[in-house]
Amino acid sequence: MKIISNLLENIEGIQIYYVVGLLIFVGLFIVIVIRTYKMTNKEANDIKNSILNDSETEEISPQN
C-alpha cells in the first residue's frame, strides 16, 4: 500500500480526475439519452411485453 501511495501522491494535478470523471459521465449520459430516444417504440414495447408471456415461446429475429 505504501508503495502505491508514494507513487500516486506525486502525480501532478490529480485533481483533474474529478473533472474528467464528471465529463465522462455527462458525455455518456448525453449519448445514452440520444440513443435511447432513437430506439423505436415497437422495439421497446416488444421487450416490455416479452416478460409477460413467458409460458409461450418468443419469436426472436434480428429485427427485434
Binding site: F25, L28, F29, I32, V33, T36, Y37, M39, A44, N45, I47, K48, N49, I51, L52
Partner: peptide, 27 residues
C-alpha cells in the same frame, strides 16, 4: 420483473429504465 408480473402489465417506459439505470449506478 415482479411488479409487471403481479400487475400483468408491461413496465411503463423501457426507455426511462435505460436512462435511469446508467445515471443511478454512475452517480
Amino acid at each position: 420483473y415482479y411488479l409487471p408480473k403481479a400487475a400483468n402489465r408491461p413496465i411503463y417506459s423501457y426507455k426511462l429504465s435505460i436512462i435511469h439505470f446508467w445515471s443511478l449506478i454512475f452517480l
